[in-house]
Simulated scan of single mutants.
Amino acid sequence: MIQPSALAPLIDHTLLKADATKAEIEALCKEALAYRFYSVCVLPVWVEDAVSFLRGSSVKVTTVIGFPLGGNLPLIKAKEAEKAVKEGAHDIDMVICLGKAKEHKFRYIKEEIEAVIKAAKPPCLKVILETCNFDPEEIRSLCTASKEGGADFIKTSTGFGKGGALVETIALLKECVGGQLGIKASGGIKNYSQASSLLEAGATRIGSSASVFLMKEAAEFRV
């Protein structure tokens, strides 16, 4: 089990529901400040507000691009990311074009990653693979495309797909990227034991909307 004190700095505290309000984003930011999470992860419309709520703190703002389906054109993803970075987003979590990936057009995936990086120059770009849609060999190819495209992280899931983060998937991602890229586990992470297992398997970041519960549960373990 990972030490509770080591868990908080690895968490992107997440609120991505479509009907989230400004008041809920403010509450999310207050929780992130209280627990010293790495970042809050919010929809692009809330980036400026989150930056304002967190000003003067070490907590960063993460936002999502092409979310949750990934079907936006690369130009749109690039412009969306560029605006988010200008508004203060530090981490950009971009959904790949899942249809192109299923057609094994991995060059397209590499090029859309490159387009976002060229336009936005994000401090950190995470590529959401939605791994539940792909077999191991496809995941390997997507990891290669992510590395070649210049990504900083690969990420398992949007949390809106048919599956979330699995220990065996994290182990495969670690095998594919080693220490070259970070690995963000997200999607269905609801308890401390699960988060700890994913980190032990190779994840270097956790995305969860249940972050506060994770921390409270972690404190009870007293590992």
Results as ranks from 00 to 15, higher is better:
residue 75 L to M: 06
residue 36 R to Y: 08
residue 132 C to V: 09
residue 190 K to T: 14
residue 132 C to L: 04
residue 102 K to L: 15
residue 198 L to Q: 02
residue 168 E to G: 01
residue 119 A to T: 15
residue 9 P to G: 11
residue 131 T to S: 14
residue 125 L to P: 00
residue 144 T to A: 08
residue 100 K to I: 03
residue 99 G to V: 09
residue 10 L to H: 05
residue 20 A to Y: 03
residue 193 S to R: 12
residue 96 I to Q: 01
residue 150 G to H: 07
residue 206 I to G: 02
residue 15 L to K: 12
residue 60 K to C: 06
residue 95 V to A: 09
residue 214 L to P: 00
residue 140 R to V: 12
residue 12 D to V: 09
residue 194 Q to D: 09
residue 54 L to P: 03
residue 127 V to I: 15
residue 46 W to E: 02
residue 131 T to N: 09
residue 191 N to F: 05
residue 203 A to H: 01
residue 17 K to Q: 14
residue 62 T to P: 00
residue 61 V to H: 08
residue 161 G to T: 14
residue 46 W to N: 14
residue 5 S to N: 12
residue 117 I to K: 13
residue 113 I to W: 01
residue 221 F to G: 01
residue 153 F to G: 06
residue 46 W to A: 13
residue 178 G to T: 10
residue 146 S to M: 10
residue 107 R to C: 08
residue 29 C to T: 09
residue 19 D to F: 05
residue 179 G to R: 07
residue 105 K to W: 05
residue 151 A to K: 10
residue 10 L to F: 10
residue 8 A to L: 13
residue 11 I to L: 14
residue 91 D to E: 15
residue 66 G to K: 04
residue 79 K to E: 15
residue 158 T to K: 03
residue 33 L to I: 15
residue 195 A to P: 00
residue 161 G to W: 01
residue 3 Q to A: 15
residue 91 D to I: 11
residue 40 V to T: 08
residue 186 S to L: 12
residue 172 L to W: 06
residue 127 V to T: 12
residue 109 I to V: 13
residue 122 P to Y: 07
residue 165 A to C: 07
residue 144 T to Q: 14
residue 47 V to A: 07
residue 6 A to M: 05
residue 36 R to Q: 14
residue 144 T to F: 12
residue 87 E to W: 04
residue 78 A to D: 00
residue 21 T to C: 08
residue 70 G to A: 11
residue 18 A to C: 02
